[in-house]
């Protein structure tokens, strides 16, 4: 373990001791997660998703520790935190993408509207149609641009005929701000686009199935500033119709696009709050250290 990591752990420990009843022993290991409280208000007035007591394990490794968090309807919430703190892991719980990892185990409760998404009666396939995802590295299918966007609507039987499908594809590309660039080249492979265009294609692909929530895991980390600006603009527009959760390593990006921000640290959700407040007036020492660039 590096020195910074140890320092962080100690800092975390002290922080926990402040928040909770005095602990019997002051070991460096933090085990009593149930007593940790997230700083800030985890609830919102009109929640789209509600998570309570979420734990994630990769085999023996405890990657997400008793996290509770509301995600408001039509808000953009940013997850920030140092590398390896579990942002992606938590994000992937929200559309059950963790199911594809055999050693991964999730406990706790996550609700989408009023449905418990880990309930036996829930069909993952439908859940993922409601909660779409955009990945860190653009991953268009090796098919034409048109087929990439048409993929979701086709498998879900969302359209009745070719004309409807055409309209839906064009509308999705339009909303993803890509239509001008690809109007004349719908038949070309999606992989022939530039990185930024590919990422917008992936966003178009995700919104084509008309999801309610869109998860974005560092969607701009492989892109240049101009492409990034386009995507950020897009996120701002998409907010009207969708709830968006974005993982990012860029504080500026989080500050620009999100209304709320959640700070994760070694599997703990340390602090949640309005983005303005988090970046101007963080309440928790760890959050402050992170956003002032003292570690991370």
């Amino acid at each position: 373990m590096s020195t910074t990591a140890i320092e962080t752990k100690v800092a975390l420990d002290q922080a926990l001791n402040l928040d909770t009843a005095p602990r019997k022993q002051s070991s460096v290991e933090v085990t009593d997660y149930n007593n940790r409280q997230t700083v800030g208000n985890i609830t919102v007035d009109n929640p789209k998703m509600v998570c309570r007591g979420v734990n994630v394990y990769y085999g023996e490794k405890h990657a997400i520790k008793n996290v509770g968090l509301d995600i408001g309807a039509n808000e953009v919430i940013a997850f920030i935190g140092p590398s390896g703190c579990g942002k992606s892991t938590f994000l992937r719980c929200l559309n059950r993408m963790n199911d594809t990892i055999p050693i991964c185990r999730v406990t706790g409760q996550i609700r989408l509207d009023s449905d418990d998404i880990y309930d036996k009666s829930i069909d993952v396939v439908q859940l993922r149609a409601r909660v779409g995802m955009v990945f860190q590295k653009p991953n268009p299918f090796p098919k034409s641009i048109y087929e990439n966007v048409a993929y979701g609507p086709r498998i879900h039987g969302m359209v009745n005929d070719k004309a409807e499908l055409d309209d839906l594809v064009r509308a999705s590309l339009e909303r993803a701000g890509l239509i001008k660039e690809v109007d004349k080249r719908m038949g070309e492979p999606g992989t022939s686009l530039s990185g930024g265009q590919q990422q917008r294609l992936c966003i178009a692909r995700a919104i084509a199935v008309n999801p309610e929530v869109i998860l974005m895991d560092e969607p701009c980390s492989a892109l240049d500033p101009i492409a990034t600006a386009k995507i950020e603009e897009l996120i701002d527009e998409l907010r009207e119709n969708y709830t968006i959760i974005i993982v990012t390593h860029s504080m500026q990006q989080a500050a620009r696009v999100s209304q709320r921000t959640a700070y994760f640290h070694l599997g703990d959700l340390i602090e949640v709050g309005d983005t303005d407040q988090i970046f101007t007036n963080p309440k928790h020492k760890l959050t402050e250290d992170y956003i002032t660039g003292r570690f991370g």
């Binding site: 559309n95 594809t100 859940l127 990945f135 991953n139 299918f141 498998i155 992936c202």
Partner: peptide, 25 residues
């Protein structure tokens, strides 16, 4: 794996993913 992930994330089942993404690729 990113191809599979992309397909699953759109709500495709395993066999749809196999037929439409894996086999062509």
């Amino acid at each position: 794996q990113s191809m599979r992930d992309g397909s699953y994330a759109l709500g495709a089942t395993k066999s749809e993913t196999i037929q439409r993404v894996l086999l062509p690729a």
